[in-house]
Simulated scan of single mutants.
Amino acid sequence: MLQRYARTHIEQALERQAAIAIIGPRQAGKTTLALEIAKNRPSIYLDLESMADREKLAEPVLYLNQHVDKLVILDEIHRTPALFESLRGIIDEGRRQGKRTGRFLILGSASIDLLRQSGETLAGRIEYIDLGPLSITEISPNEIGKLWLRGGFPDSFLAKKDEDSFLLRQSFIRTYLEREVPMFGPRIPAETLERLWTMLAHNQAGLLNASRLASGLSVSAPTVTSYIDLLVDLLLVRRLPPYHANVGKRLVKAPKTYIRDSGLVHALLGIENNEELLGHPVVGASWEGFIIESLLAVAPPRTRASFYRTARGAEIDLLLEMGDRHGTWAIEIKRSSVPKIERGFHTALDDIQPTKAFLAYSGTERFIKGNTVEAIGVHELVKELGGLSE
């Protein structure tokens, strides 16, 4: 059984709040984790994609009041958005009876409907916890290469062979195009969205140019932006914003885009094995996105993530602003086992003056490189960042 980093945070949240929503893409392991947590307490599981379970909730107050002493797991909550209004009354009544915490564990495959529906009706009664695909902290250090190639969706990562993993990811992509996207957003031709998704894979870690993408798809730039908005809401694409500060320099203003799971990047580009990956032009950008996702998966709550780039070439791959307690970390990401600091990184450090500066690389030795930059293996850096939340 894989040990998920979010488990402790979910169990702690259940001790302080009535409803906890676990948000993550389909097949990231939300249901498996919820059922593992449920083993330690009286519970009931309802899959709202099942007609039988939806019928049980035809009269939700009557049904759920029979299980007031249990943790109720509601999977695929977007299937019954009207349920949120009933949950509000049930939670408020429970509070009056002294049952204030650990009532509901709500699972959703996207942020869109959950945030919109529950933001008003369950304000002050719900806490959100992200559960993405597997990250570096959830595997052994000698499996980092495997995780990078296959991505972090558990079935893909645990497949017996690279070929099986690749086929699973291709099936996942088809499922999203044909089933998930029509459920959550406007009707978009599957072929168009697949082409956009593939174009974003080719442009992994690149600046977003909606007009160029629109030209390739024969649609308008606003239409492309709306399509990307949907992929972001489905937790499949990340838009990393540029750093904004008055540093007296001409800063890049466009965001960078990343397909959040490296395995999906590779499946979209037809990369099946490690040899094909290492020979592909996307290799460096894929590694950068992979490390950024692993870092953001463990970053302290309310961390502001961005990148820094000026018109003259000063650049920082990832800036993490973590408030007065932890300050600002500047991170440069290199796949090489013998890392080299570019002049642009030094220039950017002079501009930003971060609290700490790291050169994350694929080796294991930790050492000072230059006067202010610390070279550190990616596994150790992810572990150190995650330790700030403990």
Rank of each mutant, 00 (worst) to 15 (best):
V61S: 14
L388R: 11
A375N: 00
A245Q: 02
R54H: 04
S135Y: 09
F172H: 13
S389C: 04
G151E: 01
D155W: 08
R250F: 12
A314P: 10
H379I: 07
I20S: 11
H67N: 00
T347R: 07
E76L: 06
P42I: 14
L2G: 00
A110H: 07
L264M: 15
V298E: 15
Q204I: 11
S337T: 11
W329N: 10
G344W: 12
L147G: 03
D229I: 03
S220W: 13
G370K: 10
A245P: 00
G327L: 00
A19N: 10
L277W: 14
G284A: 05
G386N: 11
L208K: 05
W148T: 05
E374Q: 04
L200D: 05
W148V: 04
S286M: 12
L388M: 10
G377P: 07
I10V: 13
V219K: 02
G206Q: 12
L200S: 00
D155Y: 02
Y128K: 10
L167G: 04
G270F: 02
D350G: 03
G29S: 06
E76P: 10
E127N: 01
L167W: 15
L385N: 07
Y176D: 06
R103W: 14
P42F: 03
P186W: 10
A110N: 06
R238P: 06
E293H: 10
I291C: 10
P241E: 03
A357K: 07
K99D: 11
P60F: 11
R179M: 08
Y5F: 12
G313E: 02
A375R: 07
G377D: 06
Q3T: 15
A314E: 09
L217G: 06
T137A: 13
A305F: 07
R238G: 02
E365L: 15
L230K: 01
R366G: 04
T328Y: 01
M51P: 07
L264K: 08
L62K: 11
Q17C: 11
T80A: 08
E143M: 08
K99W: 04
A214Q: 08
F153R: 03
L35Q: 07
I173G: 12
S337L: 02
N203P: 13
I90S: 02
A190S: 10
L35T: 08
